[in-house]
């Protein structure tokens, strides 16, 4: 006699491969999100917008020149060594300049005029010094015929 098993076939789905797969994806995305180093902003505004709305009075403007070798000049005085990325002297002077401008109730403005072959790192160093001195109005002299845009 043939015995018939009474177990009926369960309609269960085996979830193990799916979970394996999902875990794999999870780990992948976790790793890939932490992989990228976060980028930070250092911003400036071209004078086209800055001058329009807020200020009628003439802003107190200083020009910072950067030479190809990395020397930084403010009012023809050199600040810090060309290799120093932190520029403590410049930060100190810029902070004083901002405080003076605030006392006179005029906006403190910085125009950066780098030479053509200045490396971006040096430009960012100067922008960084301006940010450290809490000067927000920073712009660049990039005009073609000795004019700013």
């Amino acid at each position: 006699m043939k015995l018939k098993f009474k177990d009926d076939v369960k309609a269960a789905v085996d979830m193990t491969p799916m979970i394996d797969c999902v875990f794999l994806l999870l780990v992948f995305f976790m790793v890939s999100t932490t992989f990228n180093k976060q980028e930070a902003d250092i911003s400036f505004a071209l004078p086209g917008t800055a001058a329009q709305s807020d200020s009628v009075e003439i802003p107190d403007e200083q020009i910072i020149q950067i030479t190809e070798a990395g020397n930084v000049f403010l009012n023809d005085l050199e600040y810090d060594k060309p290799t120093d990325p932190d520029m403590p002297e410049l930060v100190k002077t810029l902070t004083l300049f901002r405080q003076t401008a605030e006392a006179n109730q005029v906006p403190a403005m910085i125009t950066i005029a780098p030479e053509d072959n200045v490396k971006q790192q040096r430009v960012v160093d100067v922008l960084n010094a301006c940010t450290a001195a809490k000067i927000a109005n920073v712009t660049f002299a990039v005009g073609s015929e000795d004019e700013e845009i």
Binding site: F35, K37, I42, S43, T49
Partner: peptide
Amino acid sequence: IFDIIFGTFQSASAGGGG
């Protein structure tokens, strides 16, 4: 466009790629 941002890193160390 008058609003321009430079991309930078806050530090040289850490962070693997990027």
